[in-house]
């Protein structure tokens, strides 16, 4: 174990937690959209987000990550997934781990134990960002209106994840299923992206899930 000060950062359930889009009231909007909507939106909120940094060229780093998570280090622009845990390539020395709510403390401990004295960094960024999931037959059309990145399946297959410009700001697009995409949005931009997505998906019909 390293000398890093690791502690439980998530308050227990007696403390009220609000996601970055709490004020949008997705629970109240759920089921009120038109039937047959082209785009369905939901927030995958309050998940465990951990930034993991280390040298991906070092086999010891990849091995430690595998021992801790049972996941291979993802190659450039890709996503490793197992059960409800995903590991995303952000850069050659940076990865993003997303796990179910509340698991971040145990995962950080496992990572630090497995990576020992290696030159690495694990930071809990759960409070700083959220995930918006876009799905449906017109989800890709909404992306095409929003980003200059080529989201055609030939260049953006399932399992790929890219950082790009989006609606004049920046976010990560993760292709998680045939018609399903996740947008990794910074907390302070969540309201703006929500407004943008409502406008961009208006012509296709938008349904919100709580």
């Amino acid at each position: 174990m390293t000398a890093a000060n690791v502690y439980q950062q998530r308050p227990d359930d007696s403390v009220k937690a609000e996601s970055p889009l709490h004020h949008a009231g997705f629970n109240e909007l759920a089921g009120k959209g038109k039937s047959g909507a082209g785009v369905t939106l939901r927030e995958k909120k309050l998940l465990a987000h951990l930034t993991l940094r280390g040298d991906s060229r070092d086999p010891a780093f990849a091995e430690g990550v595998h021992n801790a998570l049972g996941l291979e280090l993802p190659a450039a622009l890709s996503l490793s997934t197992r059960d409800h845990v995903s590991l995303q390539w952000i850069g050659p020395d940076e990865f993003l781990l997303i796990a179910p709510r509340g698991e971040e403390f145990a995962i950080e401990q496992k990572l630090r134990l497995a990576l020992g004295e290696q030159h690495i960094q694990v930071v809990n960024v759960s409070g700083g960002q959220t995930i918006l999931e876009l799905s449906g037959p017109k989800a890709r059309d909404v992306l095409m209106k929003s980003t200059s990145y080529d989201v055609h399946p030939n260049t953006f297959p399932v399992g790929k994840a890219v950082g790009s410009v989006f609606a004049k700001t920046q976010l990560y697009i993760r292709h998680t299923g045939d018609d399903t995409y996740e947008l990794l949005v910074r907390r302070s931009f969540a309201d703006y992206i929500w407004a943008w997505l409502q406008d961009a998906s208006g012509e296709y019909g938008l349904a919100v899930e709580g």
Binding site: A76, S148, Y149, S164, V165
Partner: peptide
Amino acid sequence: MLYIFCPHCGESRSEEEF
């Protein structure tokens, strides 16, 4: 639009990303 090849991402991206 100008495309620039990022040697880390391994693909060409639009200039506005840089």
